[in-house]
Amino acid sequence: MAGRWGRGPFLSCALATVAVGAGWTFDERTAAEVAEPGAVTGRIVVAGGQVRFAGDPPAGAEIDMSADAYCRDQHDETLMDRPVRVDPDGGLADVLVRIVNAPAAGTAPDAEALLDQEGCLYTPRAVAVRVGQPLVIRNSDATLHNVRVVPASNPGFNLGQPLRGIQSTRSFETPEVGIQVRCDIHGWMTASIHVLEHEFFDITGEDGTFTLPTLPPGDYDVEAWHPTLGTVSERVSVTAGETPSLTLEFSSG
């Protein structure tokens, strides 16, 4: 997953907290270092959260890959096109979770993010990058894919990738959520690219969980964005010594 940049020395602590459960967790180590009467200078690790889907997810449509024998042969079972992917516990995948009013941004990382085409599917279905961060777009299939990227605020492009292993690198200079990516040859192939100006974001995994980097104390607007379900948001007050839990919920209605 993208979005795990600049977490500094608290990564191990954050991951440990994820293992315990979802919620906002106070980083005791940091607080101990700065604990003085009346002073609130600690940093908070947003160790985990979950985006859930309430109700029955929309039924997907069967993907017909018969037009491309290569694509068809990559899958033993018939695939379903599910724009809303929900695990048995209600966790919603492919959601961008971000802090809207995040602190000032640091330098964009040089590390490359990856959007792959494998088995005639985009992997991952959603990818998030920082402004200026390189995004590698790769074709791991031995069939032609085109990658049509249709932004609203950034220049669009459409790459022809006819051979296995071909890859191109692009970056985006303007923050933008929900850039549509599609293949015009294989109509079921869609994905989203998100471009953010800071590092306080993540994409939910298969179980709907996410992890955000450390945040200084303050009031934050947390927003979850899904390509078909839209946006939900919640305001969270982060203070030293508290561990507010955060569950963002979409509904079928």
Binding site: V147, G156, N158, L159, G160, P162
Partner: peptide, 17 residues
Amino acid sequence: GGPVRGFSDVMPAFGEA
């Protein structure tokens, strides 16, 4: 790609392939 000559953006660019 197509837009370079004012044609449809469905026509991809193969210059990197």
